[in-house]
Design a protein around this nucleic acid. Structure first.
Length: 903
RNA sequence: GGGCGAUUAGCUCAGUUGGUUAGAGCGCCGCCUUGACAUGGCGGAGGUCACAGAUUCGAGUUCUGUAUCGCCCACCA
């Protein structure tokens, strides 16, 4: 029997091979149904709606960090016994997907108009199927333990129904309306955009000063022409001017208000009006008003009932209204018009000026503000309760500073333009009767007009903004508008985890929709992570060619290494630079786990006792107690950190414990203890396994693959009777409880002293260039620590490679020709006759003496400070006094030693 | 124009109720192929915590200001 296990252990490769194990375990988990929620032991649910990636292409590191953080939270909660659900899905990404497929068509020498709407949508679906499954596979590679049986797509039947329901409800509530407004128009994508889809880029441009002749007042026709001067960044819009506005309080223009100016080139007479919106300190203090091409001017136009003359068309070419410039591109017309103005001596000057130019988020084309009939959502009534939810703490944002970002946006929210002149997306559920003009918003397709019974009706051609489906995600994915069991059980969700770059697009809108349609906030916590940047700190983008493909990283270093790096390289809300060295380091960490585990199995395979529960394990040595105390404290800290979303810090602490405390100290000490009697060997094996077991559990959310692999070996080899396993797999093994009883500060302090003794001796050996293999004699005066040191002497022998230490409480006769060291109050003497250089030894001692003196002086000063002693907390003062006592004892010993050496 | 973040070792970053001599990884120096791991071990060097003030017995940590870098928002033409 043992033979079999021994062979198994011997067969384990020397290095961890991620590619051999990852796929195997993912299939095991998925096929075993471990990703599905199960009635938990805590009575609590924990739910995350995965931010649906766009089906535009492959996953990038932004998705990898999202999946990693969410999977950590999900796996942690699953292990704590919560009824845990992670709903995956993908987003149809209206405009983004349409743009990529149109590019594909272009490469085939065709375009969507040539292939037609229906065939085009068919092409997009082909694309979607391909990339949807690629995205699923990539999430699997990342180890995402989401419930694939509940996967949703924003354009599937259920979600489409939710979208219609929402549209119609808002329409009926008067919160959706159709109207002619100035909107952001992308002349390339030929669609309206919302404000959020426009990126403003400060661009060097010019401010052009132009004077308009004034129409002479009656009776003054023969006097010299008067002028009014205006400044503009977009001269071509002059052709569409329908007024000039000045501030009513501006004395310079008071007498011009009401007069008419004559528009150059076009010759149109336009009024000079007074409007508060004009800032008299900017430019000339007089503003040309183009209601059809500028939002501010549009408002002014409304107030003064000005006509709207559209001179720039939806294709960014000048319209018939532009007179001689009709048909020209907007920038060409600009150039030509400025030339003409110069010729007419109406151009005053051209200044350099930086303009914030709006660009299309998707295709980077310069946006043109145009008047157009679009659908809008009235946002203020939705925004108010969403603000309240954060203000009154029902929704907590991590990190907190994003409260302000969220609040400021909602406070200044504008109506949301939701119609898009695209083909890919949810068609607007509105029908128009061609006979009576009736407009019908309907949950069901409409074939006859309810008003006049005419069958002569047609559906609105436009589709909805892609975010109009995503903002319903937390409840639409659970079955809404039906009151499904999932919806009742899992809504509201727990944590919305996503990048801070989509607070407005998505998070705030989900808050609004959740409250409005469900009457309940969609999630209690909003956790925002930062962006992943390249090693130089630049945003990754295809054009910069600095994109790191997560798949390549996983191929090279393993998924666990990538996950651990992403999880521990930054703090919430802060960007991270992904440096390859760090991934390598974490690949090494996975290998360390593998090898430490292999050691435990190899050296204890023949020792019975199984994998004992950490709570019943019996420590017999100082090291046993120490590692259990360290682990107990670690467990408490890690649990608290994860609960507080300090995932990076939690991960780092587990890493530190495992590598430093467990591997570098306890495992090394175990090598000694495993040479002991049967009871000690069994005890040590038990602790090695129990601590490994618990470490693997703590680490599992971060590094699911290597931990599951190792954990399964641990139990298979040490607990052949699987009925004794705490769980069928690590993924559902209970999350460890911190064992408060194991925590022992005094004992940790003793162990700390032992570590110092060992380190001092190693240091001395290193400085003296003692060959590593050589055992050195050692004498120690341990004072009150004599018993402790005596008990640990075998460890000192082994770890510092000394002969059997000669121990004393006090040494009246100090050894001659010996190097003397201090570890706390413990005096250590290494008689290294022949190796010792007295001069160097004196030098070293003097350095230590100076250090001690400085420290004593500092402490004296502090304790002599009346204010400190009286005002600081007593325990702080006491601590300082103790430190002083320690240092004084130390310097006494140093000086004594120094005297012996002469001088 | 408004707001936010960052600034800690050569590099990448931790450091959450203010309290020992500020930590880690990588890199660097020295030693070691010791029977888990060289994707390793042991030891070491390396920091005026951006700057200037303030609060406090005590500040990397709190406050104010400054500088540099970065990000977000924004209908001054």
């Amino acid at each position: 029997m043992i033979e079999q296990e021994r062979e198994l252990v011997a067969s384990l490769p020397k290095a961890y091979e991620p590619q051999e194990v990852e796929g195997k375990w993912y299939r095991f988990w998925e096929e075993g149904g471990y990703f599905k929620p199960r009635t938990g032991t805590t009575g609590k649910t924990f739910v995350i709606s995965m931010p649906p990636p766009n089906v535009t292409g492959a996953l990038h590191l932004g998705h990898a960090i999202t999946a990693t953080i969410e999977d950590i939270l999900i796996r942690y909660h699953r292990m704590t016994g919560d009824d845990t659900l992670w709903v995956p899905g993908e987003d149809h990404a209206g405009i983004a997907t349409q743009v990529v497929v149109e590019r594909l068509l272009a490469s085939e020498g065709t375009d969507r108009h040539k292939v037609g709407r229906e065939a085009f949508i068919e092409r997009v679906w082909q694309w979607v199927h391909k990339y949807k499954s690629r995205i699923q596979d990539q999430h699997r590679r990342l180890g995402a333990s989401c419930d694939w049986s509940r996967e949703r797509f924003t354009l599937d039947d259920g979600l489409s129904r939710a979208v219609r329901e929402v549209f119609v409800r808002l329409y009926e509530e008067g919160l959706i309306y159709r109207g002619e407004r100035i909107i952001n128009w992308c002349p390339h994508d030929m669609s309206a955009l919302s404000d959020l889809e426009v990126n403003h880029v400060d661009t060097p441009g010019t401010l052009t000063y132009v004077r308009y002749p004034l129409k002479p007042e009656p009776g003054h026709e023969n006097e010299p022409t008067e002028y009014i001067s205006v400044a503009t960044t977009r001269p071509e819009t002059i052709l569409g001017d329908t007024a000039v506005a000045v501030n009513p309080k501006d004395p310079r223009y008071a007498n011009l208000i009401g007069r008419m100016a004559i528009l150059p080139v076009i010759g149109r007479e336009i009024p000079i009006v007074a409007d508060e919106a004009v800032d008299s300190s900017f430019g000339t203090g007089a503003v040309k008003v183009t209601p059809a091409h500028d939002p501010t001017d549009f408002e002014i136009g409304m107030r003064h009932n000005l006509p709207r003359v559209q001179v720039i068309g939806f294709d960014a070419k000048m319209t018939g209204e532009a007179g001689p410039y009709a048909g020209q591109d907007r920038y060409e017309a600009r150039k030509n018009l400025v030339e003409e103005l110069k010729r007419l001596e109406l151009l005053l000057k051209v200044e350099d000026y930086t303009v914030p130019l709006g660009h299309c988020q998707r295709c980077d084309t310069v946006i043109e503000p145009l008047i157009s009939k679009q659908w809008f959502v009235k946002m203020t009534p939705l925004a108010t309760p969403a603000m309240g939810a954060v203000k009154y703490g029902q929704m907590k944002i991590v990190p907190e500073r994003f409260n302000k970002v969220y609040m400021d946006w909602l406070e200044n929210i504008h109506d949301w333009c939701i119609s898009r002149q695209l083909w890919w997306g949810h068609r607007i559920p509105v029908w128009y009767c061609d006979d009576c003009g009736e407009m019908i918003a309907s949950r069901e397709d409409v074939t006859t007009c309810p008003h006049c019974d005419s069958a002569n009706i047609h559906q609105d051609e436009d589709v909805l903004d892609t975010w109009f489906s995503s903002w319903l995600w937390p409840f639409s994915t659970l079955g809404w508008p039906d009151a499904t069991p999932d919806l009742q059980h899992y809504y509201p969700t727990s944590v919305m985890e996503t990048g801070y770059d989509i607070i407005f697009f998505w998070v705030a809108r989900m808050a609004m929709a959740g409250i409005h349609f469900m009457g309940l906030i969609p999630f209690h916590t909003i956790y925002l992570h930062g962006l992943v940047r390249d090693a130089k700190g630049e945003k990754m983008s295809k054009s910069k060619n600095n994109v790191i493909d997560p798949i390549e990283v996983m191929d090279q270093y393993g998924t666990d290494a990538l996950r651990f790096t992403l999880a521990t390289s930054s703090t919430p809300g802060n960007d991270m630079k992904l440096v390859p060295e760090r991934i390598v380091g974490n690949r090494n960490f996975a290998n360390k786990i593998w090898n430490a585990s292999r050691f435990v199995l190899m050296t204890t395979v023949e020792i019975g006792g199984g994998v004992p529960d950490i709570r019943v394990v019996q420590p017999t040595t100082l090291a046993d107690r120490w590692i259990l105390s360290r682990l107990a404290k670690l467990t408490g800290r890690v649990t608290a950190l994860i609960e507080n979303f300090q995932l990076g810090e939690a991960g780092r602490q587990i890493n530190e414990f495992f590598w430093s405390d467990y591997c570098d100290w306890y495992v090394e000490i175990a090598k000694v203890q495993l040479q002991g009697d049967e009871e000690t060997r069994r005890g040590t094996a038990g602790i090695l396994r129990a601590v490994l077991d618990q470490s693997l559990r703590l680490l599992h959310p971060y590094m699911p693959f290597v931990t599951e692999e190792v954990w399964q070996y641990l139990y298979r080899i040490c607990e052949p009777d699987s009925s004794r396993w705490p769980a069928s797999a690590l993924i559902v093994a209970p999350w460890p409880q911190a064992n408060a009883e194991a925590s022992d500060d005094d004992m940790e302090q003793d162990f700390g002293l032992l570590q110092e003794v060992i380190t001092r001796i190693r240091d001395a050996r290193s400085q003296m260039n003692v060959e590593p293999a050589r055992r050195v004699p050692v004498l120690m005066a341990a004072g009150s620590y004599l018993e402790m040191v005596r008990a640990q002497a075998p460890l000192i022998e082994f770890l510092a490679r000394t002969e059997k230490p000669q121990l004393f409480e006090q040494l009246d006769q100090k050894p001659e020709q010996a190097m003397s060291l201090l570890a706390g109050p413990v005096e250590i003497y290494l008689p290294l006759a022949g190796l010792l250089d007295i001069g160097k030894e004196v030098e070293r001692l003097d350095k230590e003496i100076v250090q001690a003196q400085q420290e004593i002086a500092r402490l004296h000063g502090k304790l002599a400070n009346e204010a400190f002693v009286t005002r600081a907390k007593p325990e702080v003062v006491e601590k300082e006094r103790e430190r002083l006592a320690v240092q004084e004892e130390r310097i006494g010993k140093l000086l004594e030693r120094r005297a012996e050496l002469g001088g």
